Simulated scan of single mutants.
Amino acid sequence: MKVHIGPIAPPDLTAAVVAAGAEIGPAAEASALVWYGSGPERFAELDHPGLEWVQLPSAGIETWMTSGALRDGITFTSAVGTYAETVAEHTLGLMLAGARQLHAVARADQWARPAGIRSLIGATVGIIGAGGIGRALMELLRPFGVRVLAVNRSGKPVDGAAWTCPADDASGVRRLLAESDFVVVAAPATAETAKLIDADALSRMKSDAWLVNVARGSLVDTDALVAALDAESIGGAALDVTDPEPLPAGHPLFQHPRALISPHSANPKSLLIPALARRVEDNVRRRLAGEPLLGVIDLTAGY
């Protein structure tokens, strides 16, 4: 099997393909493409009739879904689950920073203890989108003795969660929002999840609860979130993703006393490429052995 890597070919990805037993070749001769270095707008440059499989570099594929590049006749795989531990680690950091008001003390210019400091120990954590990231986060939260409420697509019980409900169970989602001290958003970005956390959802959260979004900015209604923070109707928000993204300079969330913003850095490039290389090697080996690929994209579901 010949594999092409492009439009950019980092050495780690090249080494992963070779280690898996495949041959690196020009795009026109390759049956498999490891995509890296651009968005879907350049896909047509490397697409050709003999292309059978494309490995995408990200877990979120909303831009690919709307681009029309995901054509029939090709198996597309995402990197879903590849970065779960890295993103979960960042999520835990955001939760602890919010609980301990570290964002407030970091901005302070005088010695003063902020109000609202709390503990993560024994808290109730609601995870909307309890997939790879959610499960990895649960492992990190285990020493804190938290109670986890989980929402996933199927409603199949998540090991370690106190209860699990399907995403289309509105009453279950409302229960999660009402009972959680921390609401973690880790669901995929689809038409169904757009502005999932809106004014109504925010109004159902505890007055001291924190919203943590490590999924995509589109899942949260930014204007409604700013209004809730201004009204002090929730404890705070810790966001690694925003809508719009990047967040414009001077946006009220940057300096809001109840907000903590990181610039979509839960999975930095220094960690992304090695993790992606491991997924590429695994999937190339699977392809060569005729085994099921990891992260096959369901075009109907949108992820």
Results as ranks from 00 to 15, higher is better:
A275R: 09
D200R: 11
H264S: 01
F254S: 02
F254K: 10
V185E: 09
A178L: 01
A215Y: 14
A199C: 13
G250V: 04
G290C: 13
S233C: 10
K195F: 13
L225I: 07
S265P: 01
A209H: 03
R278M: 13
Q255E: 04
N283Q: 12
V214K: 01
Q255C: 15
R287L: 14
V214P: 08
P257K: 01
I197T: 02
L239W: 01
D282Y: 04
S180L: 01
S262C: 11
P268Q: 06
P252F: 04
S233M: 15
A277D: 14
G235Q: 01
A238T: 03
S218G: 09
A237C: 10
A186K: 02
A228Y: 13
S207N: 05
V212E: 12
P274G: 11
S262V: 09
L211V: 08
P248Q: 08
P263W: 03
E232L: 14
A215Q: 05
T193F: 03
V220I: 12
L225F: 13
A289N: 08
E281N: 07
R278P: 01
L253C: 02
L225W: 10
D240E: 04
D240H: 06
L271G: 15
V212Q: 08
G290M: 06
F254H: 09
D282W: 12
I261N: 05
I273K: 00
R278A: 02
L229G: 12
S218H: 10
A189L: 05
R285I: 12
A259H: 11
L247W: 15
P292E: 06
T190M: 13
L229P: 03
A227R: 08
L225V: 15
K195P: 00
R216F: 09
R286S: 04
A224M: 10
G235I: 14
A186E: 15
D243V: 04
E245V: 00
S233Y: 00
L229A: 03
T193I: 12
V214Y: 05
L272D: 11
S180E: 02
T242A: 09
S265M: 07
S203Q: 14
S180F: 01
G217D: 15
P246Y: 04
S180W: 07
N283Y: 12
E192C: 03
A215I: 00
G250E: 14
A277V: 13
I261S: 11
E232Q: 08
A215D: 01
P248W: 10
P188T: 10
